[in-house]
């Protein structure tokens, strides 16, 4: 373990989700990373931009495609004290979605607002 971890330095982490949920493995893998990060008591932020907003769409039913539906896991993040979820307004609008279509409470931010958030992070992990 490095010195920063031992001294209890808390960094601002952001996980940037830009992929739709089932066409590739990226969305699920980022979610796994987020859950692992919860063990390290860092200041975790999740951003959903571009196709990443599709990860949070309500009503996912994967029975017909034989894959695991992991959308409910986003609702469990609160239990790990991960509550800073940001969704880009423009990405929602382009896809005909609104905040009411999402499985979890989020903060909807403008593209400019998202850019500012990203710029303020210490560590950004993106997929």
């Amino acid at each position: 373990m490095d010195e920063e971890m031992e001294s209890g330095v808390v960094k601002k982490f952001m996980f940037v989700n830009r992929k739709a949920p089932y066409g590739t493995i990226y969305a699920l893998e980022v979610l796994e990373m987020v859950l692992i990060s919860a063990a390290f008591d860092q200041d975790v932020h999740l951003a959903f931009v571009d196709d990443g907003v599709y990860e949070l769409k309500k009503g996912q039913d994967t029975a017909g495609i034989g894959m695991k539906n992991f959308s409910n896991t986003y609702r469990a993040l609160e239990g790990y004290d991960i509550e800073k979820l940001y969704v880009e307004k423009e990405s929602l609008e382009e896809r005909g979605l609104t905040e009411a279509d999402l499985v979890v409470p989020v903060e909807v931010v403008s593209r400019a607002g998202m850019a500012e958030l990203m710029d303020g992070m210490d560590v950004v992990l993106s997929a």
Partner: peptide, 30 residues
């Protein structure tokens, strides 16, 4: 999916093509 920006382009294509979409993939994505 109705209401997204790409759907407008697909709506134009429907006039010239039989267009199909796979139901199980729609449902999986909510």
């Amino acid at each position: 999916v109705k209401g997204c920006t790409a759907a407008a382009r697909l709506a134009d294509a429907v006039a010239d093509h039989p267009v199909f979409v796979l139901g199980p993939d729609l449902k999986a994505r909510g």
